[in-house]
């Protein structure tokens, strides 16, 4: 198979001249996003713990004797897990960033494992904005981009201010590549 001839300069480029993904112009997510996630996770764990405590102290159904220590242990484990997860989320969410270039989108995340996902706009099949009830309340949106790579490899940027998400979506839809590939 031969390559299209007008792009053959392609091959002549040296490594130094290629656009580089380690020199991206990284944009932070909405400042409220880490706070919302932290609050949400904290409240989910609190609800779990409160339910546990209620079960222990309710007078309606008497618990079997050996159940109490087990529940104690479970609650303790949940509490430890909550602390670990909250600390992780607190630091990891600050490390998330995205970048747009003329021809592709990038999302970088991870605390221990730093990962940069790059999605050429040419390969995008469709775009979705996802907003849960909490996202709507605080004016956030999650951008989802689907390619033929399958559901496992959906490109996602969470925690964008709605206006930004909307304009990125518009940028993708009106992109000349988006209707080609």
């Amino acid at each position: 198979m031969d390559l299209p001839h007008d792009n053959f300069s392609n091959q002549a480029l040296s490594a130094e001249q290629l656009p580089k993904i380690n020199q991206l112009n990284q944009q932070p997510l909405a400042p409220i996003y880490p706070k919302v996630r932290l609050a949400l996770t904290a409240s989910i764990f609190s609800i779990l713990l409160i339910i546990g405590v209620l079960i222990l102290n309710q007078p309606i159904i008497p618990l079997p004797d050996n159940a109490t220590p087990i529940i104690h242990n479970i609650l303790l484990m949940i509490a430890i897990l909550a602390v670990v997860i909250l600390i992780y989320i607190y630091f990891a969410d600050q490390k998330k960033s995205y970048a747009l270039r003329e021809l592709d989108l990038h999302f970088t995340s991870g605390l221990v494992f730093r990962k940069t996902v790059s999605q050429p706009i040419l390969r995008i099949q469709h775009v979705e904005l996802k907003r849960g009830p909490i996202d709507r309340k605080v004016g956030l949106a999650k951008l989802q981009v689907f390619s033929a790579g399958g559901a496992l490899h959906t490109f996602e940027i969470p925690g964008l201010p709605v206006e930004d998400a909307e304009s990125i979506r518009q940028f993708i839809i009106s992109h000349k590549d988006a209707n080609n590939g």
């Binding site: 299209p4 592709d104 050429p120």
Partner: peptide, 16 residues
């Protein structure tokens, strides 16, 4: 990765 992105975007060829 840079090279792969470049080839995809500069060739503009369809994947199917």
């Amino acid at each position: 990765i840079d090279n792969a992105l470049f080839q995809v975007e500069s060739s503009k060829r369809s994947w199917m």
